[in-house]
Design a protein around this nucleic acid. Structure first.
Lengths: 198, 198
DNA sequence: GTATAAAATTTAACAGTGTAAAGTTTCCTC
DNA sequence: GAGGAAACTTTACACTGTTAAATTTTATAC
């Protein structure tokens, strides 16, 4: 009896449709324009159906946020096998972060609660910083800085703030067409930071 | 006839009351909880009265944002007379930025559209970056870096992103009670940046 | 002091929001 | 085909920003 499986497939499809629609509306009109009713209209269901898939709007955004962080972790894992030099790895990852912000701006906005995106749950950040010990980029940081674990932990936070902070400021304060011209400046900041570490 | 003047005084008072109330609610419950009706209730007027003072909610937030930037500019002007060394000046200003974020968190949130605060008008940023040429901190940056105007302009943007970016990331991702412990890390980032400039 | 004009303020309304409860339809099993 | 469960919709509530119309308060002229 493939009925249950078919139902399960459909459920999964609707779920991803909801997430995609939310991102689409956010991309077109900004997060302040994303409403349960609008999503429902696009996926051609009545609004309460969304609550069969997500407890509330906040959990929906939390899912998008988590998917964003997951994507970046995966990208980092990929390039970890390509670059042996820690410096190269950091620089490459900074480029990935920049591209991510440009191409999936609306996801980035949810990840850091900017520009009208608001996800009250801060669980993702706790996980992010709790991962410190087995964070994909962590061991490389140890390689560059031959210091105590605490020092490296601090440096990791500095790195986090430098990269994501630069992206946040840029996306919030700069008009879209300006962003590409700012990438070299971002990369120079990253390189300067890495140089300052030795 | 002091009638008109009394009216004008009262108008000014109500206006500042509106701004203060908005900040108060934001401080207590977050910006997503700030509504025209709630502000009206606190200042004991009916909601439409607020539109006699601000065109719309966005302009109200814009005012709070502008006051935030103005405050920081003034603080910078003050310390400019105290410190002759550019490095010292930058470090001191970074400390002022940190204090400002801690003590006027809700204003900082509006300034950078984070955590539910959303002011669509981006005029303040345009002004901020247009001021580049006569920005209070600008001339000191030239002193440290003996380079072309373009290079210094880039470095100014890097500085902006480093400081405000660090604050943004910290305020969004960290629980309140963690923030004080992060100030030294912030200051170290700032010092490392300045060291990297020479 | 009262009538009149102007200014100040409120009430009512519209179209939108997230979300819960109740009602309805569709589907699957026996 | 009947019974029951699953899927889905309708309705409702308490909010939101904002506008137009109605009302009250105030200041001036007689």
């Amino acid at each position: 009896m493939g009925i249950l499986e078919r139902r399960e497939r459909l459920r999964k499809q609707v779920r991803t449709d909801i997430l995609k629609t939310a991102r689409d509306i956010a991309r077109e009109e900004g997060w302040q324009a994303v409403s349960i009713r609008k999503i429902a209209e696009v996926i051609e269901y009545s609004p309460p159906i969304l609550y069969e898939y997500f407890d509330n709007k906040d959990k929906l955004l939390e899912t998008i946020r988590n998917e964003g962080f997951t994507y970046l972790h995966e990208e980092l894992q990929k390039i970890k096998t390509l670059y042996r030099s820690p410096e190269k790895l950091f620089i490459e990852f900074a480029q990935i972060q920049w591209r991510f912000m440009l191409e999936q701006t609306e996801v980035f906005q949810v990840m850091f609660n900017i520009e009208g995106a608001l996800c009250q749950s801060k669980q993702a950040y706790q996980i992010e910083f709790a991962m410190l010990n087995n964070h994909p980029i962590w061991e490389d940081l140890v390689q560059i800085r031959q210091r105590s674990a605490e020092t490296v932990s601090k440096t990791f936070y500095e790195w986090w703030c430098l990269t994501y902070g630069f992206l946040m400021v840029s996306i919030v304060t700069q008009p879209r067409q300006n962003l590409p011209s700012l990438e070299p400046i971002f990369m120079e900041s990253v390189r300067r930071f890495l140089r300052g570490l030795v």
